[in-house]
């Protein structure tokens, strides 16, 4: 599940109305844009939700994607976060094989990555890791050597980095 080399993160503020997610998904399907991951949650203001969309921009220009998105009536604001200027986080949950002989190693791996053990079975462990997507990728890869029974990742969320550099470019000049 390696993220495409040329990806962009769009942070999209939408009206919290029925069908908004369907409109966004329909637009991506209709225009042939690729969504790599998508996270949705309400904001502190209940009238709005924020979508964090990771898009693959090898096929289509990010400008074309944002301009088409911006035409959706329920879309209020789109910020394009450059991966270099943002903090990205993702959560992974996995149930991994951990037969008694391997269990120590799996636990050690979780500790090295500062993950957590959420549940323990006879020969499986359910673990979690929150972190930068690249770190989560590494963790997932290492877990694979033991055998993954089930895996779920959330897709990334992101905010601009707090450094005194220019603000993330607001795509829509308002």
């Amino acid at each position: 599940m390696a993220v495409p080399v040329k990806h962009h993160i769009l942070s999209v503020l939408v009206e919290n109305k029925a069908g908004v997610l369907a409109r966004v998904a329909s637009l991506f399907a209709r225009r042939g844009f690729n969504i790599f991951s998508l996270a949705v949650a309400p904001t502190d203001d209940e009238r709005f939700s924020r979508l964090t969309i990771v898009v693959d921009v090898e096929a289509t220009s990010i400008e074309q994607i944002t301009r088409q998105l911006d035409k959706l009536i329920n879309v209020l604001q789109i910020s394009e976060l450059d991966p270099a200027d943002s903090v990205e986080r993702e959560l992974l949950l996995a149930t991994v094989r951990a037969a008694p002989a391997d269990r120590g190693q799996v636990i050690e791996l979780v500790q090295i990555f500062e993950g957590r053990i959420l549940a323990v079975g006879h020969d499986v462990l359910t673990v979690s890791l929150e972190g930068a997507p690249a770190k989560v990728d590494d963790f997932e890869e290492l877990l694979r050597t033991y055998g993954i029974v089930e895996l779920q990742r959330t897709g990334r969320v992101a905010l601009p980095k707090l450094v005194r550099r220019p603000q993330p470019r607001a795509v829509r000049a308002s």
């Binding site: 029925a18 069908g19 409109r23 209709r30 035409k71 009536i73």
Partner: peptide, 16 residues
């Protein structure tokens, strides 16, 4: 109807 016509309208509404 709103689902079917989503991609061929500028906007649509289901009035509740």
């Amino acid at each position: 109807t709103t689902g079917i016509t989503m991609s061929v309208t500028k906007h649509n509404w289901l009035v509740t």
